[in-house]
Computed example of a mutant assay.
Amino acid sequence: MKPFTLLYFILSVVLYLVALPLLVYLSFKQKYKESIPARFFLFNNPRFKSGNGVWFHVCSLGEARALKPILELLNDYEIKITTITHTGQAEAKRYNAEVRYLPYEMFLQFWVKKQDVLVVLEAEFWYMLFSVMRAKGTRIILLNARISEKSVKKYLQFAWFYEKLLSNVEVIYAQSEADKNRFIALGAKNIEVIGNIKLAGKISKTKDYKKPNAELIVAGSTHEGEEESVLKSFVEYKKQSDAKLAVVPRHPERFEAVYELMKKYAAKSSLTLSRFSQDKEFKADMVLVDVMGELNNIYAISDIVILGGAFREDVGGHNPLEPAHFGCKIITGKHFFHQKELFRYVHHVQYVEPDEIHKALMASKELPPSMVEEKIDLKPVVERIIKNPNLPL
């Protein structure tokens, strides 16, 4: 092990010991009860069975979902996937692949096996993962790589570190020219701009629901603090329009808290409220969608989407391609830095502050539906992945 890598490993062990009480505590939280034991204690998280094939590492739900068109082109190859979050894990398990959680860095030297190719999505820059896999002779590719405008200064402060990390990478497929320039500033080599691979994904619904006889507004992928702004705006909008509201929280562990908040607003405004899990309909004035995997099905019958994740400064927005595909009129916040490249391809979006949502709802009556322009060709990426003649079928 190289001196710097050894020092980094020792530091990771020290940080692990310091954080151990917190990790044990968080293991009992609903949100982390699967991911933290798997990642930090290797509970139910064995090594991959074989030491060859294509290994994809993603963080969460969106990145796991973005793999679909690539995996379809690699249908005959042995595929492995690691994730960070439990939502990403659930999505990855839909594929014909070995799926694991990525262990904490100090375990990687003993846990990983050499693979033919490691493909890492977006900004999952783990030093031990890169250095250990490269030392084992694994080719490393960064796909859909990005460095957000908000975080670039932090990266540049440690440019010497990221130059070491990125020196292990064979090629970087960046989302945009801006991302390419940021990687160059970090000392990276061999960078190609291909756009966002999420543009290649096939967007479809899995079920048909009955559209209500009223305008349907969906607050999709909302986070704490965003629902209240949406509910205030909807109550005002409801006074002037025949509309119904469906709220779809991003994280399932928040379903109960959001339902209690909706109950408060329903009671104050004499509006009816229901849970989607109970009747799968939109008869009530407000509906909490307390099930997973239904967002596209609901977008398909919606008129307006208030897209969450961008009304707070710390989230960075969510994927606008899905509501745009179904022709919904999109309202979102101004903090969409993680999705900036995707929003570049989506037209007719209103970007507003939380207290401007009601105004945006009123303006939607005169605006055209959102639409997506541009596609991406994944064939060059797949050709690079499978260029190794020893890659097993």
Rank of each mutant, 00 (worst) to 15 (best):
I81V: 14
I385G: 06
L216S: 14
P368F: 04
E63C: 10
A123F: 05
I376G: 13
A135N: 13
F337K: 03
I84Y: 09
A159Q: 08
S221D: 00
I191S: 07
L186H: 05
L393D: 04
L216V: 15
F110D: 14
R65K: 13
G53D: 13
E105T: 00
K29I: 04
D76E: 13
I36W: 00
E253S: 11
S12V: 02
K198A: 06
D242W: 08
S151A: 11
G220C: 11
N388P: 10
V112P: 00
D279E: 10
K359S: 15
E34N: 12
K2F: 04
D290K: 04
R134D: 11
P3H: 04
N75D: 12
K283F: 02
H223S: 00
V248P: 00
Q350H: 07
M362N: 10
H348G: 07
E163N: 12
T332L: 09
E122A: 03
N181A: 06
K68P: 02
Y299A: 00
F255E: 05
H57W: 09
V14N: 01
A257N: 14
V287I: 13
I217C: 09
P212K: 09
Y16I: 08
K202T: 14
S12Q: 03
H86K: 11
R344T: 06
D179M: 04
V305P: 00
L361Y: 03
F40C: 07
P3Y: 05
F337M: 06
E63K: 09
I386G: 10
I330C: 06
F183L: 10
Y32F: 15
I217S: 09
G225Q: 08
L271K: 15
L121D: 01
I194Y: 02
K379D: 14
E366M: 12
L393C: 07
L295R: 03
A135S: 15
A66Y: 02
A174S: 15
E228Y: 05
L273W: 01
L307K: 02
F337H: 09
N44E: 12
V14R: 02
A300Y: 04
P389V: 13
N196Y: 01
F161C: 07
K268S: 13
R250H: 01
L288A: 10
M371K: 14
L295Y: 04
L142H: 06
K29A: 10
L142Y: 03
V289M: 05
E313G: 09
G201K: 09
G137Q: 08
V315K: 00
P392M: 15
F9M: 05
T138M: 09
P37F: 03
H325Q: 12
P69F: 13
I298Y: 01
E294Y: 03
W126T: 07
A257F: 10
S241H: 12
V117F: 05
N44P: 02
T206I: 08
P3Q: 04
C59Y: 08
V382S: 11
P37V: 10
Y8Q: 01
I298F: 02
S370G: 12
Y173H: 08
K180C: 02
E281C: 12
A310S: 14
Y237S: 01
Y95M: 06
V152W: 06
D290E: 06
I191L: 11
E294M: 11
R100H: 11
K207G: 13
L71W: 01
A185I: 00
A38T: 05
K180Y: 08
L361W: 01
V58N: 07
I10S: 04
I141K: 08
V132S: 08
E373I: 15
G333C: 04
D208T: 14
